[in-house]
């Protein structure tokens, strides 16, 4: 759809604004995997309220916007094996790499962090290969 890129840009600006607020007000890097991971494995115990408040915002704002959109189809696979394998890889990988699309991608690239740029290169290439293999070669997704 033609409007998709406009909404992508608007959404991106909102995402970046969230990161800017978290950085300038709280002094923290907005990385979804780090905020969530630190909350559940206990490594972020001293800042758990801040982490929980952030995640509550991420969870609740879409609910507030939902009435404007009606039903949303996320086109997610119904194959539980795929979902579980993907979830394990995403959870484990982001904690090993210390970041995901928001932390390494948005926050890292915007400060020209070598690690952020490298991580983003790795996960984009791996994601592309994953879609190529599982969609086009194996036909699983």
């Amino acid at each position: 759809m033609e409007q998709d890129w406009i909404w992508g840009l608007i959404g991106g600006l909102l995402i970046g604004s969230g990161g800017a607020v978290y950085l300038l007000a709280n002094g923290r890097i907005m990385g979804a995997s780090g905020i969530l991971g630190g909350l559940i494995d206990g490594s972020g115990k001293s800042t758990w309220r801040e982490r929980a408040a952030f995640l509550a915002g991420v969870f609740l704002l879409p609910i507030a916007l939902l009435p404007l959109y009606g039903t949303i189809d996320t086109n997610v696979t119904s194959n539980w094996t795929v979902l579980i394998a993907a979830g394990l890889l995403v959870g484990f990988g982001t904690r090993i790499a210390n970041g995901c699309t928001s932390g390494h991608g948005v926050c890292g690239i915007s400060r020209l962090s070598l690690r952020g740029l490298a991580a983003t290169g790795f996960y984009i290439v791996a994601g592309g290969v994953s879609v190529l293999v599982f969609r086009h070669l194996l036909g699983v997704i």
Binding site: G93, R95, V125, G127
Partner: peptide, 13 residues
């Protein structure tokens, strides 16, 4: 390694 694993899962789901 972590980023490659993450990317693989990201593409999968």
């Amino acid at each position: 390694l972590g980023s490659i694993m993450f990317g693989a899962g990201w593409g999968l789901a």
